[in-house]
Simulated scan of single mutants.
Amino acid sequence: MQSNTKTHIIQAALFIITIITTTMAGAEWMFGNIFGFVYDFFFFLIGKQEGQQMPASNKPMGWVEFVQGLQFSIPFLLILTIHEFGHYFVAKAHKIKVTLPYYIPFWFGISQSIGTLGAFIRIKEVVPSRLKFFDIGIAGPLAGFVAALVVLWYGFTHLPPPEYIFNIHPEYARFGLNYPQFVYENPAGNLMLGDNILFWFFKNYVADPARLPHAYEMFHYPYLFAGYLALFFTSLNLIPIGQLDGGHILYGMIGKKRFDVVAPILFGIFAFYAGLGLFRTESFATGSDAMFYEQLLYLAIYIYFLYICFKRAFDNSSNALMISLLIVVGQFAVCYVRPDWNGSVNLLPFVLILGRFLGIRHPDTADNTPLDTPRIILGVVAFLIFVISFSPTPFILIE
């Protein structure tokens, strides 16, 4: 009993801290500034010695902005919580011992973040069957997806007037509503949210075109940004690899023998796409010798990165190295034939987390009874949700 109380206190504390960090992150995205407590400290130490004044644009925001940030943190954490309790209640229904969610606060203090690394529940016993793994795995993303749809629908049907952007960027007001043709003459440094099918649908068929924000300003709208991030993380969770929710779903649908063949192939495709365009033949054909060797060093680091990601998938480490080299050669070949094709380096950290820490394979189950037809259909629906929610290039920084 005492142990349970201690665990609940830890979970409650993590949840409260995560509310604070996501609220701060939401305000930072809305107002394009930071709660620069860490920044202030380092600037105090360095700037004081050099006699510098802190730039006005980096002065920390206050209580008013923090409260505004709740417009991001509440819908975002609501979706995350509904997702996790989808897993929790289905696990309880199957009489599987499981914990309440652990939230993971994560805030930089010197640059923008989203305030959290998500949440997870811990299964405290072996899940005995494919069916139970399937049910527990699919419940979270389905519940979270429905919640994300509600948030996106509300956000796109309750867009503020176009003048709202002047609260975020007062410097735009002197140009009026024609500000894009003046302030984006040099668009470098602006951030865009890469479309997925569902987000594109909402923008084109649900939103009032007269109120739809410019693509470079979309992340200043908290409900839209919260809903977009929810779709992004739902799609990542539905990747059918390892112990992700999608891995549980696919394992339940096709069983261990087929899964152990399919999952490494899917992981290889995912890693191949994420790093596509990172290195090209022209990077080594131009510039000085110093630049050539610098690129060669970066390439060696990248190959080692892939090796680390694939090492757990193979009993023989030489196979992991061979696959890593094949992926790099394939990326060079594709980019040589189609130089306009690019992957998304934003996904590479997730490739590392999945390959090195979460694992590509799935735990065995004692009961391997195949799923019934309704569950198979539900599994197909889950992967359709993945297709319409996945953004090939989720965050686009204009260069």
Rank of each mutant, 00 (worst) to 15 (best):
N204C: 02
T99C: 06
P162G: 03
F145E: 03
I303H: 09
L231M: 14
F66Y: 14
I136G: 07
F76K: 05
Q53A: 15
G109Q: 12
Y228H: 04
I79K: 00
L358H: 11
I241L: 14
F76H: 07
F267R: 07
F166M: 10
L77Q: 04
P161S: 15
P349H: 11
V380T: 13
A13F: 14
Y228W: 14
L117W: 12
E185N: 12
W63A: 10
D40E: 08
E84H: 11
S113D: 11
Q11F: 05
V337I: 15
I327H: 00
I398N: 03
Q331W: 01
P209V: 13
P75F: 04
S389D: 10
I136W: 10
F284N: 09
F35V: 06
A313R: 00
A215P: 00
F134P: 01
A215H: 11
F199K: 05
F134T: 04
Y228F: 15
F37H: 09
F31H: 11
I165W: 08
K203I: 02
G277E: 02
Q11H: 02
G227S: 10
L348T: 08
N190S: 15
A12I: 13
E399W: 02
A93I: 08
A300T: 15
V183G: 05
W29Q: 12
F44E: 09
K311H: 14
N237E: 11
I114Q: 01
F76W: 10
Y307F: 15
V38G: 07
D340V: 01
V387R: 00
Y251D: 09
Y205S: 09
L70D: 02
M61C: 03
L77P: 01
V64Y: 07
I249E: 03
P394A: 10
L70I: 03
G275E: 01
L193S: 03
A290V: 13
N190A: 12
G247N: 07
L276M: 13
A290F: 13
T116C: 09
I396P: 00
L224W: 05
K203Y: 04
F350S: 01
I303Q: 15
G189E: 04
F201D: 01
G359F: 01
L80V: 15
L347Q: 03
P339A: 06
Y304K: 02
P105G: 11
L238Q: 06
T99P: 02
L306Q: 13
K311W: 12
I249Q: 10
K256I: 06
I165S: 10
F332W: 04
I308P: 00
